[in-house]
């Protein structure tokens, strides 16, 4: 990624402390991205749809954890694409432009360019990409069209309590630190996430993955196999050329001479 993009990288800062679980973000996302409603049922929790879906780019996770003070602690966490700097999905995607980096640093997708291979799904450390009925990748794109026009992502725009903030990534991080949040999740993970979380508690309490990583096979493939396939071919061609020039092809005459 070019330096100026890193410098101007935008991000969403999620502050679960401020989230009231009203889920206006879920609706605003659907509204802007024109996503259909999903037929769900109540599974004994407020959380619905149960997880991200091709038509649900973000959800609020509701979890009840023990509390010393109260009967329970009820946690609300916005789950969505992390827009990783080192994005497993982008690395593994075989179709150019299907997953791409916007000028603001978002990992966006192009429905038409997706070849439905689903490799991205399996390379994502956060289990984010989903596939729609047409088998095309579908996930949060940080409202690339809105932020490209200098508007806030739809979810951020609607959030009443500032649990979602959008802005310059570095500024968001330093502001959150100044406010005294113990952990800025995603500050450095995977080269720095584009969705960062400010936690007072341990991120694990909210069910966040500790030290997220791209699957090692993908890293191995990306770091070694990909170059090897190129250098391997190049090497063979070079060796053949060298052989042809230095030793040359098999010659009947020489053999004859020898036989004689």
């Amino acid at each position: 990624m070019a330096n100026d993009i890193t410098k101007n990288r935008k991000a969403i800062l999620v502050t679960p402390e401020n989230c009231i679980g009203c889920r206006a973000c879920q609706v605003a996302c659907k509204s802007w991205n024109q996503l259909p409603g999903i037929k769900t049922k109540n599974n004994g929790t407020y959380q619905n749809p149960p997880d991200l879906a091709s038509a649900a780019f973000n959800i609020i996770k509701f979890s009840e954890v023990p509390s010393q003070e109260n009967p329970v602690r009820w946690l609300f966490l916005s789950r969505r694409c992390m827009h990783c700097e080192d994005a497993g999905c982008m690395a593994i995607c075989p179709a150019p432009g299907a997953l791409y980096r916007t000028a603001e640093g978002a990992v966006a997708f192009d429905h038409d360019k997706c070849i439905s291979c689903k490799l991205c799904v399996n390379a994502c450390p956060f289990d984010v990409p989903r596939f729609d009925e047409e088998g095309k990748v579908s996930k949060c794109n940080l409202c690339a069209d809105r932020i490209g026009a200098e508007m806030q992502p739809s979810c951020v725009k609607t959030c009443p309590t500032g649990a979602l903030k959008f802005g310059d990534r570095n500024e968001l991080i330093s502001a959150a630190k100044k406010e005294g949040f113990a952990t800025i999740y995603g500050e450095n993970d995977l080269g720095g996430l584009g969705t960062i979380y400010a936690f007072k508690d341990k991120p694990k309490l909210y069910g966040m993955i500790e030290n997220p990583t791209i699957p090692s096979s993908v890293i191995f493939w990306h770091s070694y196999l990909k170059p090897l396939s190129l250098f391997g071919l190049g090497g063979v061609v070079a060796a053949a050329a060298l052989h042809y020039l230095a030793i040359g092809p098999h010659k009947e005459e020489e053999e004859k001479k020898e036989e004689v």
Binding site: A123, P215, W221, L225, K226, S229, L233, V236, V237
Partner: peptide, 24 residues
């Protein structure tokens, strides 16, 4: 999926080395 992807690419490396030798 991930194992297949890895193996496919390892085999690919073998092919891209072996096949050109054969052709030459």
């Amino acid at each position: 999926m991930l194992i297949s992807h890895l193996v496919h690419n390892i085999a690919f490396c073998v092919f891209v080395i072996a096949v050109p030798v054969h052709i030459y």
